[in-house]
Design a protein around this nucleic acid. Structure first.
Lengths: 219, 219
DNA sequence: ATAATTGGAGAGTAGAACTATCCGAGTCGG
DNA sequence: CCGACTCGGATAGTTCTACTCTCCAATTAT
């Protein structure tokens, strides 16, 4: 398979494939002569993974590269790859250290303790949670912040299923790939479903849709 | 309050404030003379809201403008504002219409029916869900897609609490503002918590942390 | 009085993610 | 085997986003 075939098969332009090659997201093809290379199904697969992470998961090119290096490096454990993928999906802001942040830190530390989570300040989720809670306090968003335990409970339930479904020990690379896809696309999927669920609740509240007979949200 | 005071109070540079003014994210100050204007606490509040949506919620400037117009327009209902905010947080790709998409559409339609959701193809979450599931199928991510009902159940639970907490009928503008903040920052918060919950499950699986005695994730 | 600041407009900038153009070297159809 | 097409690789250019800078006359602070 040459670059044109790869492009046709995946729908990614030749120019973009060259760009991903340059940026190190896609490994180079096998050279058949000083200026000719051959690509295979693994390249097509990788290309589809790149597109999914970038277009659907919203990762940056740089974040995608970090994630893919973790996938490719046999020395990176599943657990570490999970951390890398999480870091890549979280919107990071450098911290401000005002008193809203201080209080948010305490809130998160308490939550982590309360739930028995294993998460330090180096966990990307930990820092993001602090940022969000600090921003909420600055905005007076205590109604949202008050849902913290609701969110935490829901995420605890989801995480147990997710990790169990996605991890398997037989093939490290495939497993890491699934973990990464799960974090990036699973997050997008949850956001989408949350949108529909909220729209439904809101429509019923506004009288735009009737309350259903037996459906109360737990079936 | 003049622009310099506003900048000092919120930590946003004067140049950026002027930019937001130009882009229509921040309403103009009250003119005190042909080339002098006065700003008040409402401007500072709005500015903090802009920063939160952009920095923490990850919205674009254009998306933020759409959301804020909905907040400001008394003709926009809570339910519609919710849709606008959702559209602004979802990463949109134009659809591809291959057979993966066709199957994903069916999967989402079935899910919506199964859960009794009120969501059409015009719901931003609906389209995003289709995109994500189609991408998963192209990647062979059936393990993630298999969690669909787990995600849906979790989001149904969250949505009921969220809408109830965030909506109140006394003050439309404040209520819409809370809805918008809830969607943008609540989503970021959930992603962060998911990160910690997953890291915990993964650490225990990898033997990096002990299983706790009485904590099973439902306390 | 004079130095700093203001509002407003326009141009300039940095980074991200491509996209286009070249070029000399293969490859394929007739 | 020849001419058109395509290739890989390098470099430069483009588009978009989100600012940031520079001016300038008018105002305000000291």
């Amino acid at each position: 398979m040459r670059i044109g075939d790869l492009s046709r098969e995946t729908g990614v332009s030749v120019a973009s494939i060259k760009y991903y090659l340059r940026e190190g997201l896609l490994p180079p093809g096998e050279r058949t002569s000083p200026n000719q290379a051959r690509y295979d199904a693994a390249h097509a697969r990788r290309l589809r993974l790149i597109r999914a992470l970038v277009d659907v998961g919203g990762l940056s090119i740089a974040g995608t590269r970090d994630v893919l290096s973790a996938v490719d490096d046999p020395a990176v454990s599943l657990h570490d790859a999970l951390g890398t993928a999480q870091a890549a999906v979280m919107a990071r802001t450098e911290p401000v250290e005002d008193e809203a942040t201080t209080r948010a830190e305490q809130t998160v530390a308490d939550l982590v303790e309360r739930r028995g989570w294993v998460a330090s300040e180096r966990n990307p989720g930990y820092r993001t949670a602090v940022d969000v809670l600090a921003a909420l306090e600055r905005l007076g968003g205590e109604r949202v912040a008050g849902l913290l335990d609701v969110y935490a409970e829901a995420m605890d339930g989801v995480a147990a299923h997710e990790v169990a479904a996605v991890v398997d020990t037989e093939d490290r690379e495939r497993s890491v790939e699934r973990v990464v896809v799960g974090i990036a696309l699973g997050g997008a999927l949850m956001a989408a479903l949350r949108g529909m669920a909220e729209a439904t609740v809101s429509a019923r509240r506004s009288g735009l849709a009737p309350d259903p007979a037996g459906v109360t949200g737990s079936g």
